[in-house]
Amino acid sequence: MSTSSALDTSAPADSSAAPAIEATDLVKQYGDFTAVNNISFSVTRGESFGLLGPNGAGKSTTMRMIAAVSSRTSGTMYVSGIDPQAEGPRVRARLGVIPQQDNLDEDLTVRENLIMYGRYFGLPRKYLLAKADELLEFAQLTHKAKARVEDLSGGMKRRLTIARALINEPEILLLDEPTTGLDPQARHVLWDRLFRLKETGTTLVLTTHHMEEAEQLCDRLIVVDHGEIMAEGSPAGLIREHSTREVLELRFGMDRNPEIAAALETELGNREGLGYSHIEVLPDRLLVYADDAEAALEAIHADGRRPMTSLIRRSSLEDVFLRLTGRTLVD
């Protein structure tokens, strides 16, 4: 336990000038299990920062430590220059938290949910009446103001949860898997709302195992696995660094993938000009990493191999993750 952290609060006293989040050598253990193993990162103000990793990688634990609801085993952390473990309420007053599961107040109406949440921050009721209407507008829920929470659709509940987290005009918004379980249309509406917030200068910190989301929303991200940081950078930078430009996806039918992969590796490895890197074998398909996937496919055809289906696409963060950890994100 870093009990000394209260003493060396030599971190900036003026909280508005401090970085949004500053974490150094962060460790969280539950008994013998190490959920977060010595990670350090920093988030500047106005930045959109992502934690990317599979389930159980330690993302949510890290978020809970930032949100001042979980203590750390060792290391230091400052949120707006304040230690969340020592001054929980002061830190939480600056945060907007969007949990993985919507935990709206089922005893209250949609509008009352917003007002009551604002009351938890000690904001005057009179102010909240107008603010709630403004947020209902923002979340496209004005027509549902009087409805019961349980009558809302999944997408509406998610938007209400986000609107609720904005009631205190937070400096930092923490989003834990913001669009998991939403249909594509609802997801795009949500992304649009988050873009707008980013434009107004709100710092966004989000966890996701949804690659498209990370690419859409994050300026910078860390890839986390088994509680450790595997890589750090911008989405485009990470792809450049850890993957080829294009990917060729091939299906040869059940059980034949590993054997064909071995053959392809030698065949493609001997060819020039493809920018060939390597092959990943997944249960249902092969991923051929090459800068020119079109040419790679032609070469495979030329060798007389006939895949059942083939698909050429650009590399994504999914591929980066696969390269770094040997695992897919959703398994």
Partner: peptide
């Protein structure tokens, strides 16, 4: 307006806003 927070003794446990919980 600004959120209600206290500083000083027990500021990690108590923010001086019992009223909101009661009102809920």
């Amino acid at each position: 307006p600004q959120p209600t927070v206290r500083s000083g003794l027990f500021s990690n446990m108590y923010s001086g806003n019992i009223r909101a919980v009661f009102q809920r």
